[in-house]
Design a protein around this nucleic acid. Structure first.
Length: 495
RNA sequence: GGCGGGGUAGCUCAGUGGCAGAGCAGCCGGCUCAUACCCGGUAUGCCGGGGGUUCAAGUCCCCCCCUCGCUACCA
């Protein structure tokens, strides 16, 4: 069983922010979940490095383009290392293999008659370097930057997208391709209003892949960028790899790039006679003080700062727990701290700490391997079933809620059994069962908070790594004669 | 303007025509192995407004108000 997961490739002209981090952590968590489920996972991410803005930026900074793209791409790559992102491949659009694939795709589409030469007439925003349709033709302003646009006319290759509208409409109607569900109608309406052909080359862009034609055109960046999902697994280059993983099972995107991914991208694949992705999931935005987080609004949320203060896993946890995946979320320091203290410190951290403490004081640190108490064991099974269902539906916050139901159960279990009480008969059974429960919770938490989970795992005295061994560990009884390690506070209380 | 969501407790939201709910926050008390977890008790609502159907309406129908998306080349 294979699964192919992608993130967008990130445009290196911008500094990575919480939105990039959110998409990538989401994809990573799903990738880890499927790996633990025994799937053969290919997880692709990378950077988008072409376009006029990159060219200008290098000029302004007085460095070569190569220096600029290497440096900025490196910033992303390094950040993903910091965030524990388990990508299979980090693709860069400036790699020769990618550039070659883009040209091959262009040629293939041309041969199939999916591209034709035409003339682009419309409005152009010089500062944005983009074609756009202004709201008011009498006073054409850029929909993006609100500055005046000029009317231009230039030859261009067009992609015959209109031809695939009906086919795409049917695919969307009949499949769970557009996620979340409430986006489905938006996309269908858009298609039903009629699709235009889209221009895919530019005349005046100096930094990009040149078209494999006699004229000197540059392939427009979005076209170049979308092809990464193909070139990343060897399309037209490595047939074994490609046929093994194609089509994508889950593609993560932000809601701002739905158009490209739910319309243009599948049309492109239809033109190439390739099977369409199973799911493209558009997540929401993080806001702060009700505004979209952006540099210009000055309400930047720095992932690095959060990590310095709380650690990586609390950030991963917060992003996926706080908001139902797909909706917008409000970020605030107070909200973060509340989640942290309430869920990670009070519920999970305290459970682990009190249990290990009891094992130390009541059982000299040794855990037995008798079968766990029956209601606990049954609850563990039903929680995992729900968890698995939620994860497969990419409902991260709900999956975490399931885990927390179980963590609450374990805290209650301890309280009701009260193994610290004088004359408590079955201390060993109670504590072994609780440890068994924490072990189950830790395994389920691993895709979300791999580092903290492993630390808990080690503290309980278990060998190996649940991230490597996967969910099959759930069916095993506890190893014999395990001794817990020294107690450590995994999530220190804040303020 | 067109299409589609929402409007229910302080906050986030669940709610199949049949006694208005959960989580978090609050208050009172208990328990206490622990990074104060758990238990018991308690408060809080014109369920956006108006009309209708019904023995019975957050729930179904009609009208209105407010709000948020989408309405093509922003990676």
């Amino acid at each position: 069983m294979k699964i192919y997961i992608t993130t967008p490739i990130y445009y290196i002209n911008a500094e990575p922010h919480i939105g990039h981090v959110y998409t990538t952590i989401s994809a990573d968590t799903l990738a880890r979940f499927y790996r633990m489920s025994g799937y053969d996972v290919f997880f692709l991410t990378g950077t988008d490095e072409h376009g006029q803005k990159i060219y200008e930026a290098a000029k302004i900074q007085n460095i070569t383009i190569k220096e600029l793209v290497d440096r900025n791409s490196g910033i992303y790559k390094k950040l993903w290392d910091t965030l524990n992102i388990s990508y299979t491949r980090f693709i860069r659009t400036t790699e020769p293999e990618h550039e070659e694939t883009v040209k091959k795709v262009f040629t293939k589409l041309l041969e199939k008659g999916a591209l034709y030469k035409g003339n682009y007439e419309g409005y152009y925003c010089i500062p944005c370097e983009s074609y756009a349709i202004p709201e008011d033709e009498n006073n054409p302003l850029c929909p993006d930057c609100k500055r005046p646009m000029s009317k231009i006319s230039e030859p261009s290759y067009f992609f015959r997208m209109s031809k695939y509208a009906k086919q795409l409409e049917r695919y969307i109607e009949e499949n769970d391709f557009v996620k979340p569900d409430f986006r489905k109608n938006e996309v269908l309406n858009f298609i039903r209003d009629g699709l235009y052909d889209v221009s895919i080359t530019r005349k005046n862009v100096e930094w990009g892949i040149s078209s494999p034609t006699s004229e000197n055109y540059t392939i427009y960046v979005w076209f170049d960028a979308l092809i990464n999902y193909l070139s990343g697994i060897g399309y037209l280059q490595n047939d074994n790899l490609f046929s093994k993983y194609w089509p994508p099972d889950v593609q993560f995107i932000g809601k701002d790039i739905i158009r490209f991914h739910h319309i243009i991208w599948p049309c492109l694949l239809l033109a190439l006679d390739l099977p369409l992705p199973k799911v493209i999931f558009a997540h929401g935005w993080w806001t702060s003080g009700k505004d979209k987080i952006s540099k210009s609004k000055g309400n930047i949320v720095s992932p690095q700062k959060i990590i310095e203060e709380y650690g990586l896993d609390p950030l991963r946890y917060f992003l996926l727990r706080e908001v139902p995946f797909g909706l917008d979320g409000e970020y605030s320091e107070e909200g973060f701290k509340k989640r942290y203290n309430s869920d990670l410190v009070n519920d999970l951290g305290n459970l682990v700490n009190r249990t290990v403490n009891l094992v130390e004081t009541k059982m000299a640190g040794i855990i037995g391997n008798e079968a766990p108490e029956i209601t606990l064991a049954n609850f563990a099974i039903s929680v995992f079933e729900e968890y698995e269902k939620k994860m497969k539906a990419i409902a991260f916050s709900e999956a975490l809620e399931e885990i927390w139901k179980f963590i609450s159960f374990l805290n209650r279990f301890l309280d009701e059994k009260a193994p610290w009480r004088e004359g408590c008969k079955n201390v060993a059974e109670i504590l072994n069962s609780t440890i068994f429960g924490i072990r189950v919770a830790t395994i389920m938490l691993t895709p979300f908070i791999p580092d903290a989970s492993l630390r808990i795992w080690k503290m309980l005295g278990f060998d190996g790594d649940p991230g490597m061994e996967g969910f099959k560990l759930l069916n095993q009884k506890l190893p014999e004669g395990i001794k817990v390690n020294k107690r450590e506070i995994i999530f220190p209380r804040k303020k």
